[in-house]
């Protein structure tokens, strides 16, 4: 690999710029963790001590805990569903050709391009026109529509990297189409499934623009709860929530790194 051009004055400039950008990137993440331990309601520098008040506040708030429960329940429903739909769909999209394939693919992936607000408002409008009580079902359906493209993208990228001759070899050796899928394709899709699960899970937990339309008081999810809290209160309780999410994301990164190397997973 060509690793020489980051030397000299030019190299130092590029490295410095990258360092500044990295600080810019990490600043809000590090800051919010620091802020969550603040003993004061408002930001003060240097910190006046160390307090767990806001963390206790977060974990004892029934609003946040209910929202967390809703969020995780929804993410735990949406993640396996998007795999169950996404794996066969990706296989069909990558391995076979049929009329209208490109159009179908465009439609399924369209929530990636169409702003979340438009998707959210459209789903809300349709579901309420159909006289449906939005509830958990509507929320999960909306999130599935939104998250499925992430799953299909990760899975398709994985599938495209698989040699179709390996499947032919299995057929040639006597395995039927289903056997081939379960014994040969699925095990090779492990990294794609993993990446898809993490992406879908994180996106479902984090999504605000669709959730704000499709969740009500009984199905309120964490981002919506946090938004409402920020509007009404001025204390670092949301920083405590953020810290919990950051810890979770560090655990996920570590997990991905251990299982498949996170650089690879992010490329999918």
């Amino acid at each position: 690999m060509f690793r020489r051009d980051l030397e000299g004055r030019f190299g130092i400039t590029v490295s410095l710029l990258a360092a500044v950008a990295t600080v810019f990137l990490l600043l809000p993440v590090l800051f919010v963790v620091l802020h969550s331990f603040s003993p004061t309601r408002y930001f003060q520098w240097p910190p006046q001590g160390f307090s767990l008040e806001w963390h206790l506040n977060f974990y004892s708030s029934s609003m946040f805990m209910d929202a967390a429960k809703n969020s995780f329940l929804m993410a735990l429903i949406v993640t396996p569903l998007s795999l169950v739909i996404g794996i066969p769909a990706s296989y069909a999209l990558v391995r076979s050709s049929f009329k209208g394939k490109a159009v179908i693919q465009q439609i399924i992936l369209s929530p990636l391009i169409i702003p979340g607000v438009v998707t959210g408002v459209s789903l809300l409008s349709l579901l309420s026109a159909a006289g449906m009580n939005i509830g958990l079902f509507g929320l999960c359906l909306g999130m599935l529509v939104f998250a499925l493209p992430f799953a299909i993208r990760a899975l398709s990228a994985n599938l495209l990297g698989l040699d179709p001759r390996i499947e032919e070899a299995a057929r040639n050796l006597g395995a039927g189409p289903f056997r081939t899928f379960f014994a040969i394709v699925l095990p090779q899709l492990k990294s794609g499934i993993l990446a898809a699960s993490v992406f879908v899970f994180v996106e479902a937990l984090d999504n605000f623009s669709i959730a704000v339309f499709l969740s009500n008081d009984s199905t309120k999810v964490l981002p919506v709860a946090a938004y409402q809290y920020i509007k009404d209160f001025d204390d670092p309780t949301v920083a405590a929530m953020a810290t919990a999410l950051i810890v979770m994301s560090i655990i996920l990164v570590a997990f991905l790194e251990k299982v498949m190397g996170f650089q690879k997973s992010l490329r999918l």
Binding site: A18, T22, L25, L26, L27, P28, V29, F31, V32, H35, Y42, F43, W45, V198, V202, L205, D206, F208, L222, P223, A226, Y227, I230, P236, V238, A239, M241, A242, L245, I246, S249, I250, L252, V253, F262, Q263, L266
Partner: peptide, 30 residues
Amino acid sequence: LIMLAIAVTFLSGGVTRAYSWLILLGNRGL
């Protein structure tokens, strides 16, 4: 290291980051 910073930031979510910037960028923010 930079990739790690990006990954953690990316996965930590939008609301977290919006909130953090709200405090960071205040008149009496960091």
